[in-house]
Amino acid sequence: MPPSLVQDLESDSLLSLTQAQVGCDFQIRRLEGPGCDQLRNLGFCESIQVRKLANGRNLICSVCGTRVALSSDLADQVKVEPTDS
């Protein structure tokens, strides 16, 4: 299978942070979109754990022990999958 197809299939199976459930822990798998640099500056990096704390127009989540508020546009660019625990 070509690598781009693998990536597409993987992307389809991932949730965006907007879709993720409040109160659960997730692992960041990929950042997609123009806000990547802004997100990485605040600790949203691949393989980092994130906990979603609140939904809304702006989401609240905890990343690297820091609470961060981010717009749903940005949260859409964070692709996560649930952690095993």
Partner: peptide
């Protein structure tokens, strides 16, 4: 020119 989004640290 470069769209910016709301992203704010909520310190303890």
């Amino acid at each position: 020119e470069v769209p910016t989004h709301f992203l704010l640290e909520l310190p303890p």
